[in-house]
């Protein structure tokens, strides 16, 4: 990645190059435009747009791990699910406030993330992949068995989401839910954009590109990875909590291997290591699913599989890297 920096850029000091990378490009406003357009389409699109916003938040959290920190995980659904269950359980016990519910979900996921990350980040590559895989099966089986807490296979019923900030109720046509999700998405995006362009984010990428060298110049590699892992878990937990609040339900589908693999697929379709890939991937995936899966789920699965295989083989940077091709910059 660092090889692509042109010689002209290399002459300017590091702080200035960071600042120039951080500068907002006009194309980066496209997600905001998309967010603003949805209400104009009519209320029929609120549920899909809400789902996209939630999934994009989840995708962004995974991109932080996979794309920026180079940690490939098959168990990111754990944090989404823990967030969903935490806010759902709080709601069942009478705490239905949506905003603080998000913090409950994020905090619960962060706690699980810091503990699990502390353990699994001692390993790397295939072993790490296997540990995350075992973790996701463990957590979803625990959620299945702990019926008194989670409702087991039936899921958590009786989740009641209160009015937003005490004013706006979550109505049937989904307007409040959409605006809430979109706001959370924009906040997470701004936060993550700041994080990855900050020196901390740059150091994470340095660790990804060459852990040995990062360690040699004095970086505390594992603590930094643990911080990223925890932040990522918290954001995934936020997305999960949001999902539980919108659905007024939390179940096993929010926590298992399937959702972990799906989000990885969505992210990779969009392109890893760039925040906009984490937006494009889930959006394209969910819209295509909405259009195709209604007709024939098996055909949708076939096309999806072919699309993944073709993307990995021919467009390794994901769909969002095609934007660079159009701009004539070539490979990221």
């Amino acid at each position: 990645m660092s090889d692509d920096v042109s010689t002209a850029e290399r002459r300017v000091p590091f702080a200035a190059s960071l600042r120039s990378k951080h500068r907002l490009r006009p194309a980066e406003l496209l997600p905001l435009v998309a967010v603003a357009i949805v209400p104009l389409l009519g209320s029929g699109y609120y549920p899909l747009a809400t789902q996209i916003a939630i999934t994009v938040i989840f995708g962004l959290s995974l991109d932080l791990l996979v794309g920026y920190a180079g940690i490939v995980t098959l168990g990111h659904g754990i944090f989404f699910g823990v967030g969903a269950y935490a806010s759902g359980i709080a709601s069942v016990h009478g705490w239905g406030d949506p905003v603080s519910g998000l913090f409950i979900g994020a905090a619960a996921a962060a706690v699980v993330g810091v503990v699990q990350g502390f353990v699994v980040l001692r390993t790397a590559r295939f072993t790490l992949l296997m540990l995350t895989l075992c973790s996701v099966f463990l957590v979803s089986e625990v959620a299945n068995k702990a019926g008194w807490l989670t409702g087991g296979a039936d899921g958590l019923t009786g989740v009641m989401t209160g009015p937003l900030l005490g004013v706006w109720t979550f109505d049937l046509d989904g307007r409040t839910g959409y605006l809430f999700s979109a706001t959370v998405f924009v906040l997470v995006w701004i936060g993550l954009r700041g994080l990855v362009h900050a020196p901390f984010g740059q150091s994470i990428m340095a660790i990804r590109d060459n852990p040995g060298r990062a360690e040699a110049i004095g970086m505390a590699v594992r603590p930094r990875l643990l911080i990223v892992y925890t932040v990522s878990a918290a954001i995934a937990g936020t997305a999960g909590a949001l999902q539980a609040e919108i659905d007024q339900f939390a179940g096993l589908k929010n926590v298992g291997f399937e959702i972990s693999a799906t989000i990885l697929v969505m992210l990779a379709l969009g392109g890893t290591g760039r925040l906009y890939g984490a937006m494009a991937g889930p959006a394209v995936y969910l819209i295509a699913q909405d259009l195709l899966a209604k007709i024939n789920p098996a055909m949708w699965q076939l096309w999806l599989g072919l699309l993944i295989v073709a993307t990995v083989l021919f467009v390794p940077g994901g769909l969002s890297s095609l934007a660079d091709v159009f701009r004539g910059r070539g490979k990221r």
């Binding site: 098959l74 992949l129 697929v265 699965q301 076939l302 599989g305 993944i308 295989v309 993307t311 990995v312």
Partner: peptide
């Protein structure tokens, strides 16, 4: 020689294709 992420994704895609073919 590609990274494990590419290999993981590629094989997940292959599972989807195989599953869909069988189901169809």
């Amino acid at each position: 020689g590609r990274g494990e992420l590419d290999q993981v994704l590629f094989s997940i895609g292959l599972i989807f294709v195989a599953g869909a073919v069988v189901r169809l």
